[in-house]
Write a protein that binds this DNA or RNA. Structure first.
Length: 271
DNA sequence: ATGCCTATTATTAATAGA
């Protein structure tokens, strides 16, 4: 089973990119972020024509998240991150797709830091961490996928010293990510590719893509049940090279099928 | 220290992104 996450940076302006990517890569589940569109702008019929059913949490102009699944509509579990009933921003949606629980997130950017936006980011991170603690022990595989807006370590930044005061790399944010992972989550890409430079985002500025000045900010966290089945993980870098493309590339993981149940012992005789 | 580039919204400029 292939599960992907893709910050599309505008689902309407990036519709052709999204559809071409779905046709080529055929993920079983796709998490999308930065729809930048209200619900009625979501291309339900276009993705259905490619074999996908979708649920989404849209918003005018900004934010917006969606979960797509091949052949079956995701069963929505929730769309509001607990902890702040006044939070109006569409940054999270959670669903069951078959046996897999999927959380699709778009964590706040937080710049400029310090400031109210940075405070909001840290509070959101804390709410997410509390929610994740409940999901960790779920009996079924849990996959938390999306744009976390944090580079976890120096290895995840083309030039760490330049980003020290940025909201994506400040110590508070890296520590928040580390605390989350320490609950028992597996960072899928880093676990399968230790020591490797992996980027998922390249700024539109500064000629970042041609010179590979990238950041790793889109992540997959797996609970122990899912981590046991982790078979492969990667980045669809070629998408970032397309014309008028998103500044993020899609990221994916491959989970092995569920192990067959051990043979049952001799059935108890009841009478 | 700031802009670079891009999308959205609302009217040619402001805001947000990372």
């Amino acid at each position: 089973m292939k599960i992907a996450t893709f910050n599309v940076n505008g689902v309407r302006s990036r519709l052709a990119h999204l559809l071409l990517w779905l046709e080529r890569e055929q993920p079983d589940i796709a998490c999308l972020q930065e729809l930048k569109s209200e619900g009625h702008g979501f291309p339900t019929l276009d993705v259905r024509a490619r074999g996908y059913e979708a649920i989404f949490h849209g918003q005018k102009s900004w934010n917006g998240v969606a979960i797509l699944a091949k052949g079956a509509k995701p069963v929505e579990i929730g769309r509001a991150m607990p902890g702040d009933p006044n939070d109006e921003q569409s940054r999270y949606i959670e669903a069951d797709v078959g046996e897999v629980r999927v959380g699709c997130l778009y964590l706040p950017n937080g710049n400029p830091a310090p400031g109210p936006k940075f405070d909001y980011k840290l509070r959101w991170f804390e709410r997410f961490t509390q929610h994740a603690a409940e999901l960790l022990a779920h009996e079924a595989p849990v996959v938390l996928a999306g744009d976390y807006n944090v580079m976890p370590t120096d290895l995840d930044v083309y030039k760490p010293e330049r980003w020290l005061d940025d909201a994506l790399f400040r110590p508070e944010v890296r520590e928040a990510y580390a605390r989350l992972v320490a609950q028992g989550w597996t960072d899928a890409l880093r676990t399968l590719h230790p020591g490797e430079r992996i980027y998922t985002f390249w700024d539109y500025f500064r000629n970042a893509w041609p010179r590979n000045a990238g950041l790793r900010i889109d992540h997959f966290l797996l609970n122990p049940v899912a981590a046991k089945r982790l078979a492969a993980a990667g980045v669809d870098r070629e998408v970032r090279g397309w014309e008028k493309t998103s500044d993020h590339a899609p990221v994916w993981v491959e989970l092995k099928p569920r192990a067959p149940k051990p043979r049952t012992k001799v059935r108890k005789v009841t009478e």
